[in-house]
Amino acid sequence: MKNILVIGFSTRNIVCSGKRAGYNMFAIDAFCDHDMLECAKATIKLHTGESFDARNIEPCSLTEQIESFGTEFDAIIPASGFETMEFPGSLPVLRNDHDSMEQVSDKSRFAKLLRSLDLPHPQTYALSELESITYPVMIKPACAGGGIFNRVLYSQNDLQPYLESLDKLHISLKKEDMIVQDYLIGTPASVSVISTEDEARTVAINEQLIGTPWLTKVPFAYCGNVTPFITPYADQMKNIAEELIKELGLIGSNGVDFLMTRDGPVIIEVNARFQGSLDTVEMSTGSNIFEAHMQAFEGNIRLKEPSKRQYAARAILYGNRDKEITSNIQRKILERYIADVPKTGDMMHIDEPLTSVLSTGRSRGEVISEAKSSVMFIRECLEVDTSRRGSPRTESTYV
């Protein structure tokens, strides 16, 4: 296989990993970031409206986009938001089968599986049970949303204001699209796994940055990773993740999200696809996750002994105002070690991802310090550019 088409809302990390592995990468992507364009042979911008919902895309429109490349693809890889979509034609689609995806995405079914395996998982409730449960609880979309719409309910009275806030954002989520779980305190983490039908092997254990105040004002937004995550529960997490991936029959690059509580690791969810931690895993270990994914679909796990053993961070910076990216802003941003680089003319919006800051070093403290320095630099560049253009907006920054 040589020509690979990746389809998803955000594909940059997959496309660039594939290029580094020697593949000809093509993408249909909602952002078409500057660095993704440099890695891809060709791209087409994905238009889904404000909802970022793949269900809004007509199959015939997607077929036309695929055919417009004029390339004979060897395979399609679905990325974020397209994990369960049916693709036209007879091309191989390198993803998990429909039944496995259903078992992962159906939160009620997933919770029952974990109970049958005696694996720790937050108690999950239906919205009809809110009168009889103990608060606080976490409410969130049943399908992934990067944590942006996750909130804590401290009483039943908090439900209606939460639903109204979604309506104001034009988010088309119904009550049946939401789940409620016990609200647990701990450190978010994940285990990155490569698996075949017969074997599952951990590549890395990662800390997750969630709702990090110097990156976002959104309480539970996904803000990146630090790899490795050092914990006395590492072996337990590794064993749980590998057992669960094999039980689910998942193939390729998959991840298990945990919350490290004072009582030990609790499973939050399974990401049956490439994960946002791909960057830090590759920077920390020297492995190429795209190549490992491709080999796994051939029935092989060919992970070399890590060529690097260092800390790596990816810190996703969110916008604190609506902002057009000027050539000056892009030029200044590119002075730092970053990814997901917006193009000149792109409009970035408040509380949406702006760019990703990357860093490597000998300790967690070192990579976090370097990431914070880059974030401060980018924030200052945005403020200077705004003042020169005479913008009337006066919101303060938050770093």
Rank of each mutant, 00 (worst) to 15 (best):
I133Y: 02
H47E: 15
Y318H: 15
V137L: 00
E282Y: 04
K372W: 07
Q275E: 08
P342Q: 02
Y222M: 04
E383A: 14
D340L: 09
L317K: 05
R393E: 11
P228Y: 07
K372P: 00
M347Q: 13
M237D: 02
P59D: 05
C143N: 13
L173F: 14
D35G: 07
I133Q: 01
F9P: 12
A371M: 08
R379C: 00
S374R: 06
V6C: 06
S10A: 15
A234T: 12
Q310M: 05
L5V: 04
K308P: 02
K19S: 09
I66W: 06
A296L: 01
L62A: 13
I7Q: 10
T280E: 11
I268E: 09
L215A: 02
E131M: 05
A27H: 07
E199G: 00
S287R: 00
I350S: 06
S327C: 02
N239H: 13
A313N: 13
R314L: 13
T326S: 14
N13S: 14
Q181K: 00
L114W: 03
T71P: 08
F149W: 12
S116T: 11
C32T: 15
I4A: 05
D74N: 13
A30R: 11
R388K: 12
A296H: 02
V357G: 03
P136M: 05
K140L: 10
V93P: 08
I133A: 03
M260A: 09
G361M: 04
A126E: 09
D340A: 06
E86M: 11
N13A: 12
D198Q: 15
S68R: 12
E291I: 00
C381Y: 04
R151G: 05
V256S: 03
T344N: 11
R393H: 13
T11A: 15
T394F: 10
D198Y: 10
Q65S: 15
R20G: 04
L334D: 11
F149N: 08
R302Q: 15
E383Y: 12
V218G: 01
A126M: 09
Y233V: 11
S165D: 05
E242G: 08
R273M: 05
I171V: 15
L119S: 01
E324N: 06
F69T: 03
N239W: 01
S155G: 14
R115D: 15
T394I: 11
S192W: 03
I148E: 08
T386K: 14
T394D: 08
G390K: 03
I205N: 01
I245E: 06
D340Y: 08
I333R: 09
Y222K: 08
S116H: 14
D97F: 10
A312M: 00
R321I: 13
L163R: 12
Q160L: 07
F26M: 04
C143S: 09
L317C: 01
R302H: 12
F274I: 02
P342Y: 03
G49C: 02
I316E: 02
T212V: 02
